[in-house]
């Protein structure tokens, strides 16, 4: 996994962190700013960020791993989310996930070698009336079935 991480220069790190010097309570905006730039939070940021915020590296890691929105490994350009909530489950959400697994060749939480896709499961996407639901990046695909899902996934 490390080999896929791009080299990050010290100047780049300092450039992002300079706005957060000493601001402990802005740890989440800081993590978001890093993730916005790289698509994930590269592990090399943990110690410098902790130092800038006057926190311990373990505390930064604790916050980062608590929230599902942050990832410490590179993620794909396209994030596919399949809902595994109750409403989607009773209407066949599991078969949609299996389709996604097969078409993308990825397990839950995995990212493709070419960094094109990341597949994730979520507990609810807030669109139960359209269940089963899948999202690709910010687009919702409702009333899915395996066939429709396969078509959608193959068109991106």
């Amino acid at each position: 996994m490390e080999s896929r991480c791009p080299e990050i220069q010290k100047e780049e790190i300092d450039d992002i962190l300079k706005d957060f010097e000493g601001k402990q309570f802005e740890i989440i905006p800081a993590l978001q700013a890093i993730q916005a730039k790289y698509g994930y939070v590269p592990p090399v940021f943990v110690k410098p960020l902790a130092e800038a915020l006057r926190l311990f590296p373990s505390q930064v890691q604790g916050v980062m791993t608590f929230y599902a929105q942050f990832s410490m490994t590179p993620r794909g350009r396209n994030i596919v989310r399949v809902c595994r909530g109750t409403a989607c489950h009773v209407r066949g959400g599991r078969s949609v996930l299996r389709t996604a697994n097969r078409v993308l060749g990825l397990g839950d939480g995995e990212t493709s070698e070419d960094l094109n896709f990341t597949l994730e499961t979520v507990a609810c996407l807030g669109a139960c009336a359209l269940s089963p639901v899948m999202t690709i990046n910010r687009t919702y695909f409702g009333l899915m079935n395996p066939k429709k899902a396969e078509t959608v996934l193959k068109t991106i």
Partner: peptide, 9 residues
């Protein structure tokens, strides 16, 4: 010392 904190949830 800061060696430990929660990991995951």
């Amino acid at each position: 010392t800061g060696a430990l904190d929660y990991l995951h949830r």
